[in-house]
Amino acid sequence: MLEIENLHAAVDGRAILNGLTLAVAPGEVHAVMGPNGSGKSTLSYVLSGRDGYEVTAGRVRFRGEDLLALDPEERAAAGLFLAFQYPVEIPGVTNMTFLKHAVNGLKVQRGEEELDAMQFLKLVRQKAKALGMSDDMLKRAVNVGFSGGEKKRNEILQMAVLEPAFAVLDETDSGLDIDALKIVADGVNALRGPERSMLVITHYQRLLDYIVPDRVHVLAGGRIAQSGGKELATRLESEGYAAFVEKAAA
């Protein structure tokens, strides 16, 4: 589904990714782990097409398409979703309005019929309920005044409503207490399926106790330093990243 080959990327002229190669098949959940500064967030922003992240070499194919040639909204229409590490606050735009524009923006781009107000309301209410989110949260401005946990839950709600083929979860566990973590993980697990893949980016192994990955990759120095099964995450937790950082620097 997603094939990253020899990806090099720079921010402000500084190389962050240095030949990253990674492939995720349909239905698989992969975890990318790494210390601060290893390029985890850069990877998520390059994939979603944020300005200021310059790809200097390599390519990314997504469902057979050249992902890097697409605008952010086109990537979304192709089925890509990024759950932000720091969800953005948008004063003056309610969650409902935001979701409605997103749902119908995707439908229009895909040449499908837009949802009417009733269909949309029903869809969102049902998804919100499953995540334990109140109607009040839907009426509030996007992420404004939300706690850390509420913001992350809001990201998962968007994912549940938009049903992407591929989701990148960027440090979705950061800032969550254990109860919020369980709710978010349950929400993510509910979306797992044979046609949906995920890339779970995290610093800690903790999240992977709840979202159990098929593969684990260690990111160090802007490339994959090691890959393995879920037991690699447990090993990292006890041994730390030091060995990988040294190896990458060498």
Partner: peptide, 16 residues
Amino acid sequence: EALFYLRSRGVPEGQA
């Protein structure tokens, strides 16, 4: 940031 957030969710730039 808000503009990118909207676009990443599938809202075309002009509409965002």
